[in-house]
Write a protein that binds this DNA or RNA. Structure first.
Lengths: 137, 137
DNA sequence: TCCTAAATCAATAATGATTACTATTTTTAT
DNA sequence: ATAAAAATAGTAATCATTATTGATTTAGGA
């Protein structure tokens, strides 16, 4: 049960730490393969799960059916773009108090909550503006 | 593109309205088959999606990777049990103001948000208590 | 350094939810 | 009643993820 070092796990975490776009397992796989060509997709999945359980990274389930991963484990929130599916950070102070402020009626035991946002990211907003211009031509 | 009546879709919606436990597509399929034995699973999925798009039911994506469906489209929140996976309603006034109260910094356009809770449902709490008693024997 | 047991791996198969395809049937407006 | 559009049943395909298995790597002690 003791956790042993593995070069593959190290590379996975190193890669995640360079990224702010919350990549999926597949994206991690594609990228780590550049440095370590015969890493297996299963190894990526296993280590992303392990690192999540250890609290070294965070697994994001944002309603698109694909798990995203984030090396930034500090408390923050996410926006998923309804147009491109991209995930970006959003600073939203005050949501953490949601449980305290909310008037919750529930007969079980509430342990935590998940909140995420959806909308249109900056990139897609800009390309939409560009398309509007083109239509005018 | 016009939507035509179908008995299958009617049965799916009728069934959903009788349930407060937010069933999955598979559960809907199993149950509607009692009244309409040769309905197809694909038909269930297609109509659950259609009804969701029409706003007649609500699709719930609660982080367990399985879509749940709810005929109650009024504004309310959900708790997913970390033990049995069951989904139940929770009244939580004040969360709707989350966007207004939160101090959001984001360069894109936020359209909405999703919040759900996780914890242990009443049923699992009680069976845990029962198990504790047994250990004492 | 060498040895051994436990952990990890690569490769591949299996799983499970969901979607796509197609020929047939049902609905509905005329 | 008829014909076009929509929906269906049955089945195959997809896609993310997990499980399996025999080989390889790691880590701690002799």
């Amino acid at each position: 049960m003791a956790i042993k070092y593995s070069r593959q796990r190290q590379l996975i975490k190193d890669f995640l730490m360079t990224r702010k776009d919350h990549p999926t397992a597949d994206v991690v796989y594609m990228n780590v393969r550049q440095k370590y060509p015969n890493i297996s997709l299963g190894t990526v999945y296993r280590n992303l799960s392990l690192l999540s359980e250890l609290g070294e990274i965070r697994r994001l389930r944002l309603g698109d059916g694909i798990d995203h991963y984030d090396a930034d484990t500090s408390d923050h929130y996410h926006v998923i773009c309804t147009q491109c599916g991209g995930v970006s950070d959003v600073k939203a102070d005050g949501i953490g108090d949601i449980l305290g402020n909310a008037n919750i009626e529930y007969d079980g035991e509430i342990q935590g909550h998940v909140t995420y946002f959806y909308g249109i990211c900056e990139k897609c907003l800009k390309s939409a503006a560009r398309n509007d211009l083109l239509i005018g031509c």
